[in-house]
Amino acid sequence: MREVYFIKQNKEKWLGIEQVIQGKMKKNPDDLSSLYINLTNDLAFAQTYYPKSNTTVYLNHLASQIFQKIYKTKRVEQNRILYFFKTEVPMLVFQYRRYLMYAFLFFILFTMMGVLSAIYDKDILTVTIPNGESYVNETISNIKKGNAVAVYQQGSTWGSTIGIIFNNIGVGAKLYLYGIFGGVGTLFALLSNSMMLGSFQYFFYDYGALKDSARGIWLHGVFEIFAMVVEAMCGLILGASILFPRTLSRFNSFKNGFKDSFKIFLSTIPFTICAGIIEGYITRHALKMPLLLNVIIIFGSLAVIGFYYFIYPSIVNKKLNNHINDAVL
């Protein structure tokens, strides 16, 4: 069968499946299974006769989407939270993985801008952080006393923890929701926070206290900063859904973009809470604990969150594709 005729023969069916995936048409689990079986038959035919065609790529993507739809209709209510973090979020992160890459590239660029700004303007930190002048003076005094992270030892542990958690969630919400301005708002918020980080780290380097600051700041900073970048990713997804609706109406594209990005944003909350707990209870003891313990906490945190957002989504996607291939075969 010629490919053109194959497409013409099945086009309406495939468009109907797209409607189901987008939630415009409701189907019960049995109907979804029938659609999936029918679609995998088309995919098997396309893989046999048009292996390098865009039609095969399209059908494989469609089969992946409808399989996810079926998977969600299974009885996951009893383990809904587990399913959300174990399967749903990783699938979305893999789907939008290029936005995570964009967010990290912008983060690195903006952080380097903060470092360069601090090199050429020693007073930049007084501008980039709240209450900059008094904070800088206090930190310089602490460094001279041999306690670069003394600022984290103020206040009660539980009070500091609660305040830090709510503050960081607020920062993350801005990074995400500012994406509604076509992603520009997210980039501006990321620029502000990244330049603050870059200039702050150079400030400690300039005063010969980079090692001590790293032992303290990055105990909680790994979760906090990594989550911030993921939240920026969510803002970019939101902005792209408005700017590039593709075949959907702009409203439906925004609705889908918001639904997907919000789920990813929610996945950062546990990491933000962990960062707040570490900052409130552990960072204040950073210079008193053995260096090896600092290293274990810092790189252990990096391994956990890096695995979850960079490696695990590929594992989940591979399992999904194996299920599809098994169904086709």
Rank of each mutant, 00 (worst) to 15 (best):
T73F: 03
K74T: 13
K74W: 02
E77P: 00
E77Q: 07
R80E: 05
F85R: 07
V93I: 14
F94M: 07
Y96I: 05
R97M: 12
R98S: 05
R98H: 04
L100Y: 05
L100R: 06
M101E: 05
A103I: 01
A103S: 14
L105P: 00
I108R: 07
L109V: 07
F110M: 14
M112S: 11
M113K: 08
V115C: 02
L116D: 12
S117M: 15
A118C: 01
I119M: 07
I119P: 02
Y120S: 04
K122D: 13
D123E: 14
L125E: 15
T126S: 12
P130Y: 00
V136S: 04
V136E: 03
V136T: 11
N137K: 10
E138F: 10
I140N: 06
K145Y: 00
A148V: 14
A148E: 09
A150V: 07
V151F: 06
Y152E: 06
S156V: 00
G159H: 01
T161G: 03
T161H: 01
I164A: 03
I164E: 10
I165R: 03
F166H: 09
F166K: 15
I169V: 15
I169K: 14
A173E: 07
K174H: 14
L175E: 11
Y176K: 13
I180E: 03
F181K: 12
F181D: 02
V184P: 03
G185E: 12
T186M: 09
L187F: 12
L191G: 12
N193Q: 11
L197K: 07
L197Y: 07
S199D: 04
F200S: 14
F200N: 11
Q201A: 07
F203A: 05
Y205F: 06
Y205D: 03
Y205H: 08
Y205A: 10
